[in-house]
Design a protein around this nucleic acid. Structure first.
Lengths: 119, 119
DNA sequence: TATAAATACAACCATTTGGTTGTGCAAACT
DNA sequence: AGTTTGCACAACCAAATGGTTGTATTTATA
C-alpha cells in the first residue's frame, strides 16, 4: 500500500502485486481475455493459434487467475476458464479519473481567463 | 506482431514492446500519470512524496515516454513532463471491445432461448 | 485394457523490471 | 565565483517475467 498527500488530498493506493493492470499488461493475456469474453474455454482451447507451448499458456492463465481476471472450475479432466469482465471496471474507473483531472485542468484555466477578462 | 484467425476473423495484434498497457501496469507510473493529469511537472516535482530515489523516478519517466504516455520538453535545466491523456483511449477501446464481446454472448443466448420458446 | 487427452509440477534459462548508489555536468541562484 | 539544483549516465543487484523442456497423473475414449 502507498499513502501520500497530494494537492491537499490523502491518496491511498492499494498495491497488490497481482492486480487487473498487471493482468492486461501482457499482449498474450489480452488475447486470452478477449477469447474468454466470447465464452468459457479450457486451457487447450485457449492455446489454439497462440504460437506458444501449453505450459506458457498455463502460466498466463495462472497469473490471470491470481489477478482475479478469470475464474476456473474443474470439469472432469478439463480446467474451464471464464472471464470476470467486471474486474475491468477498475481499469475504466482509473482511466476516467485521469481524464477527469485532465479536463478539470482546462476548466480551471477557462475560469481564470474569464476572471481576468472581467477586470 | 501476432496474427491468427479466431471466430472467422483475422486477428492482428501490434505488439510493441512499449505500449500504453505497459505504461499503466506499474502502480508508481499510475500515480505519476495522475499527478501529470493535473498539469505539467518536472522530474523533481513528480518525485515529491514518492518514497523513492530520483533515479528510480527518472526510470519510470523514461518508460512512460517510450510508451508515448508523456511528452517531455527541455526548459533550461528542467525536464518538463506532460501527460498525453489521449493515449488512454487505446485502453478504453480495448476494455470496451472486451465488454461488447461479453454482452454479445448473452444476447446470443437470449436469441437462442427465444427461438426455442417459439417452437 | 491400452491409449490419447488435459493438465499439473518442476527445473531451467535469458531478459526485463524496479530499485539502489556513485559520478559528473550544465543551468541557475547568492 | 562558488554553491545549489536538476538531471543524465553507468554500474550493480535481487526478483519477476515469459518462455522452454521433461516427467507424472488423472480422466476419457477406442
Amino acid at each position: 500500500m502507498v499513502v501520500f498527500i497530494f494537492d491537499n488530498h490523502l491518496v491511498v493506493f492499494m498495491v497488490e502485486r497481482r492486480d487487473v493492470f498487471q493482468a492486461i499488461a501482457d499482449p498474450t493475456r489480452r488475447i486470452i481475455i478477449q477469447k474468454l469474453s466470447r465464452g468459457p474455454l479450457n486451457i487447450a482451447q485457449i492455446g489454439v493459434d497462440l504460437e506458444m507451448s501449453r505450459q506458457a499458456i498455463a502460466k498466463h492463465i495462472k497469473i490471470l487467475n491470481e489477478c482475479g481476471m478469470i475464474s476456473m472450475t474443474q470439469k472432469g479432466r478439463e480446467q474451464v476458464c471464464e472471464a470476470r469482465i467486471e474486474r475491468l471496471e477498475e481499469v475504466m474507473d482509473w482511466v476516467a479519473k485521469s481524464r477527469e483531472l485532465w479536463s478539470q485542468r482546462f476548466e480551471k484555466l477557462d475560469r481564470f481567463l474569464n476572471e481576468t477578462k472581467k477586470r
